[in-house]
């Protein structure tokens, strides 16, 4: 991929490093492994939203490995933990839009209210534009007040076409029109917004399934990616979100938004492990440029530097 990591990601990684994982690194830098080392490790993982269960399993596995391999130095233990974390994130990973497809790709964006869908879409547009691709947006959030206007402002700023209907219109029809328009205008990618919905609202999740089907019927293989936007500030509920959205629309990956705060997005580990969902991108700020492709190796490496 030609896309280069923005400085913003480096900034936010540096901050993360200094705060949380920086502390792990400092902790693991000490020489011998003691009972206190384990306790602190557990505390640090839990405070990063990794979750009590995942943390306990991680730490137990690490303890076993440390005992079996007769590891005494905290530095070696760090390498083992790093390996585990990377493996967890890499499982089931795939390149974004890496599958076989025709000339047009459809990307469906889903998530709970306020997770950052619209802003993440703007970032994805910029990502495709940097690769010289023509993007068309579908204003599929016909529910929330002014959601269409919000996307229209971004479309205008980024100079891309937007297909929108009236507020309250059928989002499936919007996507149908958008795919048609994209085909006749020879666009490379359709990115479809959807209304934010809590995963516990059964009817709304069924509606999402319908939108998904509209895309598939319109274009074989579509949507080529269905991306769940997950707020990095989210705690343990992120797992339930990913599970339920996955059941409704076959989510293919995650966009981890708002990573520029102090939250660590540790729930992504549990999501990756239990549901095999990879993180494809991370959002690192409010501007369209503030996006980076997710790289597990680099990410975890960065955390331990």
């Amino acid at each position: 991929m030609i896309f280069r990591r923005s400085n913003k990601l480096q900034d936010s990684l540096t901050r993360t490093r200094q705060s949380f994982f920086g502390r792990i690194a400092g902790l693991l830098g000490q020489s011998d492994i003691t009972e206190q080392t384990w306790e602190e490790l557990e505390a640090l993982l839990i405070q990063a939203d990794v979750g009590a269960n995942t943390t306990i399993e991680l730490v137990d596995a690490l303890r076993e490995q440390v005992a079996r391999d007769r590891v005494h130095r905290a530095g070696e233990m760090q390498a083992l933990l790093k390996g585990q974390l990377v493996a967890m994130l890499q499982a089931n990973g795939h390149a974004y839009l890496g599958g076989e497809g025709g000339p047009l790709s459809v990307v469906l964006i889903v998530g709970v209210n306020g997770s950052g869908k619209t802003t993440s879409i703007a970032k994805l547009v910029r990502y495709h534009q940097q690769q010289g691709e023509k993007v068309l947006l579908a204003a599929g959030d016909t529910f929330r007040a002014a959601a269409i206007d919000q996307l229209a402002v971004w479309a205008d700023r980024l100079g891309v076409d937007l297909i929108a209907h009236q507020p309250g219109a059928d989002p499936g029809a919007v996507l149908y029109d958008a795919i048609h328009a994209a085909q006749s205008r020879r666009a490379d990618v359709v990115i479809a917004d959807t209304a934010g919905r809590l995963h516990t609202k059964h009817n709304l999740m069924q509606e999402l399934g319908k939108i998904h089907k509209v895309a598939a019927k319109q274009l074989p293989g579509a949507p080529h990616e269905t991306i769940l936007v997950l707020d990095a500030t989210t705690g343990q509920n992120g797992l339930a979100q990913a599970r339920t959205f996955g059941e409704a629309v076959d989510v293919t990956g995650m966009f981890l938004a708002k990573l520029d705060g102090t939250a660590k997005g540790g729930i992504a580990f549990a999501v990756a492990r239990e549901l095999g969902l990879p993180i494809l991108f991370v959002g690192t700020g409010e501007r369209a440029e503030d996006i980076a492709e997710f790289d597990a190796e680099e990410f975890v490496d960065g955390l331990f530097e």
């Binding site: 405070q47 500030t233 705690g235 509920n237 705060g261 102090t262 540790g266």
Partner: peptide
């Protein structure tokens, strides 16, 4: 505050 917020809520 979003009810789904994780450990970081306190710092915020």
């Amino acid at each position: 505050v979003d009810a789904m917020t994780g450990q970081d809520a306190v710092r915020v």
